[in-house]
Amino acid sequence: MLESLLSMEALIALIIGVLTASGVYLALRARTFPVVIGLTLLSYAVNLFLFVTGRLTVGLPPVISDQAAGYADPLPQALVLTAIVISFGMTAFIIMLSLKARAELGTDQVDGRLDGDVAPDEHGAGRGGERG
C-alpha cells in the first residue's frame, strides 16, 4: 500500500514536471499556435498540481462517516474546478485573439513580424511595425 502510494506520488510529480516543462518550452516559441498549446499545458499542469495539494489518498470518504479513518480533502477539488473553468475561458479567449492577430497582422508570428523579415535595426523595425 505504502509503496504503491509512493510510486503514485512520484508518477504524478513526474507528470506535472513534464507538463510544465513542455508548457514553458512551447510558450516560448515564436508562433501563436505553440504558445496557446504551451499555455494550455501549463494550465493542465497547475490543475493537476492543485488536485494533489490535498494529498493522494485511496478509499477515504469525502463526507462524514462513522467508520472513516480519515477524509479526502474536498477543498482542492473545488479549487481545481474553479481553475479549470477559468483556464478554459482564458484559452478560448486567447485562441480567438490569435486568430484575430493572424487576420490583422497577416502572420502568426507573436511579434507580428512577417516571415523572413529580419530586423537589422531592432528599434526601427519595432517602431515601423507599430505604426503599420
Partner: peptide, 23 residues
Amino acid sequence: VRAGLHFVALNLAGSTLFLFAVG
C-alpha cells in the same frame, strides 16, 4: 491586437504561477 496578445499570454502565465504558489 499585437500588444493584447502579449498582455494576455503573459497574464495567463502569471495566473499559472499564482495557482502554483497558492497550491
